[in-house]
């Protein structure tokens, strides 16, 4: 009998029940915790994204690193672009785009909730990433999408922490999350699952994980999960340091340093003489 030995997958992290709430509140964004407590309405703008609150609950999130709802709904033809853009244009204070989209009957409540919640947690993961600048809250600012299924702030914070831990357990290096990705040539070729193959097919030395997610019309966090799994399997590496400005090839020839070579030769001779 042939026993195929595979590495057991890391367990999805489970929240530590003892005092998790207090830790989550303190670790992600104290400002957000305070805004939830005072049931604030407005938008929290942070370095990597924004969270929209209505009465202290998260109704929407956006981040340049996560594909927007438009990308998710239009890429795979869930909605026709005309239907989407009309709802966006007609949305106002009273009726957000979510309500208008449901009224068209072109998308069901369940589908819109699943897609929007996925996008909300996805963007929140990036928006709540550790930042070098303080966040800013603008009271009263609403979002054109409107409220569909508000989520408690502590649920978003807990999930964000859990996601960080999940990525860390899969592959502890965060570089592949943001750097251009390169295909590695693995000695053994383990065929990854189809969702990872789709990601791998777009790895070209230029695209980053968020760009691949956008191209696939897929939320960014699942793509980070796939990329870290591919990195752990040795199929993908991140370009480091990220390329800045490529010098012309003629200038990039290796500078041969003669003294080093003579030193190495003398060292070799000395070792051989031992």
């Amino acid at each position: 009998m042939i026993v195929v030995d595979t590495t057991p997958p890391p367990r999805l992290p489970v929240r530590d029940r003892t005092g998790g709430r207090e830790r989550a509140g303190g670790a992600v964004s104290p400002m957000l915790t305070r805004l939830a407590a005072e049931r604030a309405t407005g938008v929290l703008e942070r370095e990597r994204g924004a969270l929209y609150l209505v009465e202290g609950r998260v109704v929407h999130a956006e981040s340049p690193f996560a594909p927007g709802l438009d990308v998710l709904l239009l890429t795979h033809g869930t909605l026709e672009p005309g239907v989407w853009w009309e709802a966006v244009e007609r949305s106002g204070e009273e009726r957000g785009a979510a309500r208008l989209l449901l009224d068209t009957g072109r998308i069901g409540r369940g589908a819109l909730e699943v897609c929007h919640l996925g996008a909300l947690y996805d963007a929140a993961y990036f928006a709540l990433a550790p930042s070098s600048t303080p966040g800013r809250f603008r009271y009263g600012a609403g979002h054109w999408f409107g409220a569909l299924r508000p989520v408690p702030v502590d649920a978003v914070e807990r999930e964000t922490l859990r996601r960080r831990e999940l990525l860390d357990r899969l592959w502890p290096d965060p570089l592949p999350d943001s750097a251009p990705l390169l295909r590695a040539d693995p000695a053994a070729d383990p065929l990854p699952p189809s969702r990872q193959r789709a990601v791998l097919a777009l790895v070209d030395g230029v695209r980053t994980a968020p760009e691949i997610a956008r191209e696939l019309g897929r939320p960014a966090f699942p793509t980070l999960v796939d990329v870290r799994r591919l990195a752990a399997a040795g199929l993908v590496t991140a370009r480091f340091p990220p390329p800045v400005a490529q010098p012309p090839p003629a200038l990039a020839l290796p500078q041969v340093n003669d003294p080093d070579i003579t030193l190495l030769k003398r060292l070799r001779d000395a070792l051989e003489a031992l």
């Binding site: 992290p13 489970v14 029940r17 999940l166 966090f221 999960v225």
Partner: peptide, 22 residues
């Protein structure tokens, strides 16, 4: 992919629906 419960009702093994979902 993430282990997130988008919604839950009723009870869950161990009494913690987030842990059960993960």
């Amino acid at each position: 992919t993430s282990g997130l419960a988008l919604g839950s009702v009723g009870e869950f093994p161990g009494g913690d629906h987030e842990a059960a979902a993960a």
